[in-house]
């Protein structure tokens, strides 16, 4: 193999000139705003319809506003940005595709279920490091009410939620990546394998996704030769209470103890007891909005310097669920680092 290769181990790539996350923007719904992370989001909308006549349109609008505001806050114009990588949870990615009608940036639509934040971030970073772009955007959105009726039950139907159920986050997050400036850098990308351990219960997605998260974390640490203590924070996307505990236990079995530095965005975003969310948040807007606000903020404030972000996705569709298929899981890891010189030391 070429000695200049950026490949590392089996599933990881190293950025030669680490792209910088120059700005982020996050927007969430009222329930997320009332949660423990409420003060960290850039914007909390009061009305989760955003004045639109359907929740699908509201989700699309949420995505549009998040992307436009991210571009504005970076003092850039749409023409400056070469690619946008984005996705959502709805069939045929309508939320992002429809919003992209009004965005003048070449568009790659991605479906990685709730893993789309790190999937889009991986590709956005690789595109810049590969020399194909100066600026890229990685963004995702999800909406509780549109997901609820696509994946679970109609909103009008008074079904009882199970204790392991998670609450789809109404939220969007966008990251703008560039080459210049003193900002947190994307240093490594570990792309996950699809893992299926036969879980069929769409009310227990944390358990379906946890093995995929564990696999990607272990592969990342092996490929990079980094110990788990290298990171100040290892953050999964939306495993929720149940999946978080499974992840910790599976990692301990493999000899990794990350209990002190491990966080899950789905576990952080809601106060499950007070807010009645049962097993935490989910949805691709979950890791997006939390990573773009809370964790990006901590990096900028130098409270933490090295974070491994692993968005986790449950790759089922309403049709596959009805046909009794199990739920495959996926997880993609992105290392984001911010040292005094901007990147990896």
């Amino acid at each position: 193999m070429n000695s200049n290769t950026k490949r590392l181990g089996v599933q990881t790539v190293r950025m030669q000139n680490p792209p910088k996350i120059i700005t982020t923007y996050s927007m969430v719904g009222p329930k997320e705003g009332e949660g423990p992370l409420g003060q960290y989001f850039h914007e909390v909308v009061k009305d989760d319809t955003l004045g639109k006549e359907s929740y699908e349109k509201a989700e699309s609008e949420l995505f549009y506003q998040t992307v436009i505001k991210a571009i504005e806050s970076a003092n850039l114009k749409q023409e400056d940005i070469n690619y946008i990588f984005a996705g959502d949870l709805l069939n045929q990615l309508t939320s992002t595709c429809f919003a992209a009608r009004n965005i003048n940036i070449p568009f790659f639509g991605l479906f990685g279920a709730c893993s789309t934040m790190t999937e889009s971030l991986s590709l956005a970073a690789m595109m810049i490091d590969g020399g194909f772009a100066d600026y890229t955007i990685a963004a995702t959105v999800s909406h509780f009410s549109s997901s609820e009726r696509q994946f679970r039950f109609p909103l009008e139907y008074g079904s009882v939620r199970r204790p392991t159920s998670q609450w789809t986050v109404t939220g969007a997050g966008a990251m703008i990546l560039g080459k210049e400036g003193n900002f947190p850098e994307v240093t490594y990308v570990t792309t996950g394998l699809v893992k299926d351990y036969g879980i069929k219960d769409s009310n227990n997605m944390g358990a379906a996704m946890a093995p995929a998260a564990v696999d990607t974390i272990v592969k990342h640490l092996e490929d990079t030769g980094r110990g788990e203590k290298y990171y100040d924070a290892i953050v999964t996307g939306d495993l929720g209470k149940v999946g978080k505990e499974i992840t910790l236990q599976l990692l301990e079995k493999q000899g990794y103890n990350i209990r002190d530095i491990y966080y899950d965005c789905g576990d952080l975003i809601f106060d499950d007891e007070k807010q009645g969310t049962n097993s935490g948040g989910s949805g691709c807007g979950c890791s997006a909005s939390v990573a773009c606000s809370y964790f990006y903020g901590k990096l900028m404030n130098k409270e933490i310097k090295k974070i491994l972000l692993i968005s986790t996705g449950a790759l089922m569709s309403p049709t596959s669920t009805q046909q009794g298929e199990s739920i495959p899981g996926i997880a993609h890891a992105v290392a984001i680092e911010f040292n005094s010189n901007g990147g990896e030391k």
Binding site: G29, K31, Y55, S145, R149, P154, L155, E156, T170, G276
Partner: peptide, 8 residues
């Protein structure tokens, strides 16, 4: 007469 609403 009614529109669906987000659960609380």
């Amino acid at each position: 007469f009614f529109n669906p609403k987000t659960k609380s």
